[in-house]
Design a binder for these strands. Structure first.
Lengths: 191, 191
DNA sequence: CCTACCGATCGGTAGG
DNA sequence: CCTACCGATCGGTAGG
């Protein structure tokens, strides 16, 4: 028997799993307790509220995407190289933290106003990384001059954000293949 | 005073609005009643269950997208022309029936098993329209020969399905501009 | 479409 | 982390 008490981190992780699968409003504190082998009421020794759990999961998502963008920029290189790192980094965040990413992408609007605002700001900052990279690539001639950085950043992120909806990590397409296909499609669209 | 009794269609429309905004589980029958100026319990003279309402909204979404694809194919023409009609038609469905489209795209997995299965089949059939058009375009040389119909159909649909998340019909970008940008981006990716 | 309910479940608390 | 609850709200029904 290795039964141990759950940590706060365990609770947040399980919450991410259920929020990703069933949605915030589709998950009850009793569901979450069952997932961890305890009663719903016992969760309140770890967290202050259900909303609190959503905040933690979504903000972890914001941190992960933000860190990925920072890392992609920090290495420098051409706009084309930065964009490839942004794309690969986004894929890694989604696939290595699928529940967190899904909750971040689909349940952020269930946050109360102040938290939602902060998350939307973080998301806009992340998007700006893509926009800026497209602008730089257009400016230096790496990308077509009919590329519209604002719109195309949204288009590219639309493709990336949808990955959690269809990609099966245990399926026939490898992560490397996924990244290659993304690079080809986006590359062709921009050059 | 033009206060009239609500029809079943009114109830379904209002349900689509709330399901799109707050999600299926975030909407109560009392919320929906309030939206229509009646009590939650009164809704049961129009529908059998809450799930029933979700089924109606989601299946209407499936019908709309299906009809759009059928129309795009029926007109014939080159793969390139069909694809443009598929894209424009998808945009029209999303923007002319936003609540239905959002509910179809985001709440279909809240359906019970049998209905969800049917909707997923319809969605796959719709996706096959895109895949087939890409295949035809590769075969006749309209599109690059490194286009992967299966993957690229998903990528294109990812861009189209995300439109409800960011496009503001009252904003600075017109629908015509949106369609032009989509055509340019997707066209560049495929040719 | 309302009145008047039903049992079940919700998020959460007090006290250990 | 459990026991023992709380008031509020849930989807839904009977009967008009």
């Amino acid at each position: 028997m290795v039964t141990t008490r759950n940590s706060r981190a365990d609770v947040v992780t399980a919450a991410g799993r259920l929020f990703a699968e069933r949605g915030y409003h589709g998950t009850s504190m009793r569901d979450l307790g069952k997932e961890l082998g305890l009663l719903g009421s016992s969760l309140y020794s770890h967290v202050e509220s259900k909303q609190d759990l959503l905040v933690e999961v979504v903000e972890e998502g914001a941190r992960l995407f933000g860190a990925s963008a920072d890392a992609a920029l920090a290495q420098g290189g051409s706009a084309d190289e930065v964009l490839v790192r942004l794309i690969d980094g986004h894929v890694d965040v989604v696939l290595d933290n699928r529940d967190v990413a899904r909750t971040f992408l689909n349940e952020a609007n269930m946050l109360d106003d102040s938290h939602r605002r902060r998350v939307l700001d973080a998301r806009d900052h992340y998007e700006e990384t893509f926009r800026g990279t497209l602008r730089a690539g257009v400016a230096d001639g790496s990308f077509r001059d009919d590329v519209d950085p604002k719109t195309d950043a949204i288009f590219i992120l639309s493709v990336l954000n949808a990955i959690e909806r269809w990609f099966d990590p245990g399926g026939s397409m490898s992560v490397a293949k996924l990244k290659a296909e993304l690079g080809r499609f986006v590359g062709a669209a921009l050059t």
